[in-house]
Design a protein around this nucleic acid. Structure first.
Lengths: 338, 338
DNA sequence: GCGCTATCTGAAAGCGCTTTCCTGTGGTAC
DNA sequence: GTACCACAGGAAAGCGCTTTCAGATAGCGC
């Protein structure tokens, strides 16, 4: 039980009484090998519980069976929904997924790209809103450019500003605008927005789309309160709004996760939803239909989006032009709005 | 923009006019190098956007900066909560996480262990209930044993039966029993159990603990309905129960996720919770406190559990005896039970 | 000025594998 | 019986890196 080393292909070859080359050929099925030798090699490999060293293989083959995925936080249902789609698609292709959470730290994101580059990951998937920050954009470009030049594949989900890579783009602006119009149709005229951090492009688009639709309807711009992109952020933002004295009849939280927090704050404050105030979110993460009241939101096909990013990254054929796949959101009116 | 190859250390060395060895020493800081040479190497490396090939490094160093995590489904809040803890701890140690979802397919789980073994992952973390199946146990052992013998680290969360590895073990049996006692104290006497698949050991323990506590109180064993370990599984199980004619005053779902589905089914059926029937779950995933009514459950410190498994796997010192860290669950009575 | 040591640099081996190139074998045709 | 061909197996190169080992240079005391 001492700390032995791994079984190597040489061990297998020796045990089978054949050369290294033959053993390799048998295990990869790359060439015809006499039946008895083949049998001996296979027996030896299984007896020794041989597993090829993927690093040695990657080194000599200059390719790799892993894809890297970088998201903000796996425990956020939005990202885990997408990750699920990515993993399902990766499993179909026999690929291993390296998943990293940046915890919304832009420096850590760059560091992960660098690590993934070192791993010669077949593709790197950047999931979730990018940072609206020139310095970050430049640093990211410095990492990505050489990776792409060396044949690496990159695809992004939901970031568009600077990154010149294939992208799956939820129509945040249009979705938020459609939601606003649906809410207007319900008769609401005074809105407040529970926004996420303004440095995230998703936030900019959703808030922008929503406000534009209000402006187009001849209304004054809605009040905006900023909070973190979490349940607690939504909770705090709603409390701030409440403390200021709520005049709006309808609240729009830029993500469902924030809406969940807002709902708790409203309830704590003794307000009924939708009786006293209506509430809407964005994303349609699984839980929101189980809330009371079920949340009005803009549905995004999360799992499918995950499948599409990885497909986009791995697609072959000429990759001359940047490709952008838009994903439409669907307004779903549930009982949280009246 | 043609498909060039990656920049290698040799390229950097040549560009800097030094030998391969010197370049390596500069970039790793493993030995003193004259100031001017050091400067030239660093300049060349940054100019060429050099990133070391992690595979070549792993090959020669025979070690690796990645840990593998295998769970059932990232999009399940139970697992994503744990995964979050693992990733946070991994980030602190500058480790990359390879996360795989088995989608509860035991064969796929074995396949992933094999891939991770090939990757020479520093550690493999098996998260979530194992399968109660001799064949699977044997196959898993065949993969794990050589990995361990070669110095690999393995830790598991929540599986105990066969796997002889360090384990973080939620006290499912005790937690379920404590919940049952708390429910008894509330006056309930007729229970029904919404169970997950009986092949998962977690299910066996939770159902067992709950029933034992009832038996100890002199009650007849509760009726058990089996469903998938998902929201839909809980929903269907509850409907089955309803169709049979509900006699119980309190339902216990073996996971919160199932409880969420059950809640929807009960509500659809026109039953009020807890007015007509009480409902309790297990895990305390984040969303359940935002349900209406908030769910009574047994709280498990998910994120902390994740941190503990990885710490267990990576701990140094003698690893002679198998170590089991128990994690207690805390009964949290919320408004879903009366 | 000579010999010794302390440093630093370069050459080369080797990590585990795939794959090219070459040699040896047997079969076929004449 | 000889010449040729097809084919299977082995030797060896090489993927990109770290690290020993040995060599070169400078510094020091005598």
């Amino acid at each position: 039980m001492t700390e032995r080393t791994h079984v190597t292909l040489q061990d297998v070859a020796t045990a089978a009484g054949v050369s290294l080359a033959t053993a390799s050929r048998v295990l990869n099925g790359t060439a015809r090998v006499r039946e008895d030798l083949r049998g001996r090699v296979e027996a030896a490999a299984s007896r020794l519980a041989y597993t090829p060293n993927a690093h040695a293989q990657a080194l000599v083959r200059a390719s790799n069976e892993t894809v890297g995925v970088i998201c903000h936080d796996v425990s956020d249902p939005y990202f885990s929904g997408i990750a699920r789609g990515v993993m399902r698609a990766a499993a179909d292709r026999d690929l291993l997924v390296m998943l990293a959470s940046t915890f919304r730290d832009s420096a850590r994101e760059i560091a992960y790209v660098s690590m993934l580059r070192a791993q010669r990951a077949r593709a790197i998937l950047l999931i979730g809103s990018g940072f609206e920050d020139r310095r970050w954009e430049r640093a990211m470009d410095v990492e990505l450019r050489p990776y792409l030049n060396a044949g690496g594949r990159v695809a992004a989900l939901s970031r568009h500003r600077s990154l010149r890579v294939d992208t799956v783009l939820p129509e945040n602006r249009e979705g938020a605008a459609a939601l606003a119009r649906a809410l207007l149709a319900l008769g609401h005229r005074r809105f407040a927005i529970l926004s996420g951090p303004a440095r995230l492009s998703t936030v900019v688009d959703r808030v922008g789309g929503f406000r534009d639709a209000l402006t187009a309807a001849g209304l004054e711009p809605a009040e905006v309160v900023e909070g973190a992109f979490t349940r607690e952020g939504g909770y705090e933002a709603a409390r701030t709004l409440l403390a200021r004295g709520l005049t709006a009849t309808c609240l729009f939280a830029t993500t469902d996760v924030m809406a969940v927090g807002a709902l708790a704050a409203l309830r704590e404050h003794g307000l009924s939803v939708p009786g006293d105030v209506s509430l809407a979110g964005f994303d349609d993460i699984p839980v929101v239909r189980d809330l009371t009241p079920p949340l009005t939101t803009v549905a995004l096909p999360l799992e499918q989006m995950g499948e599409r990013v990885i497909a986009l990254a791995l697609r072959d054929g000429p990759r001359s032009r940047r490709r952008i796949e838009r994903v439409a959101g669907t307004v779903i009116l549930r009982q949280s709005t009246a």
